[in-house]
């Protein structure tokens, strides 16, 4: 029995977060942009009275940028001691699977803690603790990681 993972899709790439790091999955709301903010920050939402940063996961994973759409989902996650939100194209499932550590060190890729074949899909297992401080991956790097072990 492996780890429970919340799986989701971003720009066609299947990723997951450990279930204990995910507080809620909600339908995508409007996001208020923060002019001048770090490009990794998509904006901010009001989460039951508290401001909550929305992380631009596409930017962090080196994927194509896209406008938010009502069909998308927002994951409310624990990022260390803070709560933040991550926009995804679609939340898929809660799956159970072992997490395989990414070969090599995690330099420049602290966000990705490993890969998991959970749910019949090989997915990148992210670490929400590094959502706020991870350096963005180079374009194509995330797909390479997912593909190289597949």
């Amino acid at each position: 029995m492996g780890e429970h993972l919340v799986t989701f899709v971003v720009d066609g790439l299947v990723c997951s977060l450990p279930m204990e790091q995910v507080e809620q999955v909600v339908a995508m709301p409007a996001i208020t942009p923060l002019p001048g903010a770090d490009p990794r920050v998509l904006g901010v939402i009001d989460l039951h009275g508290s401001p909550c940063l929305v992380i631009n996961l596409r930017r962090l994973l080196g994927l194509r940028e896209a406008l938010i759409q009502p069909e998308q989902h927002l994951l409310i996650v624990k990022a260390g001691q803070r709560i933040c939100a991550v926009g995804v194209d679609q939340a898929l499932d809660v799956a159970s699977g072992d997490v395989l550590t990414v070969p090599g060190d995690r330099r420049g890729g602290e966000l990705i803690q490993g890969l998991s074949p959970s749910g019949g899909l090989l997915n990148l297992v992210l670490d929400s603790a590094h959502l706020l401080d991870a350096a963005p991956l180079a374009p194509g790097r995330a797909r390479d990681l997912a593909g190289s072990t597949a």
């Binding site: 909600v26 339908a27 709301p29 939402i45 009275g49």
Partner: peptide, 12 residues
Amino acid sequence: VLVERARRLAMP
């Protein structure tokens, strides 16, 4: 739709 969801999410 997005704005309405944001408003609901902001409720206590």
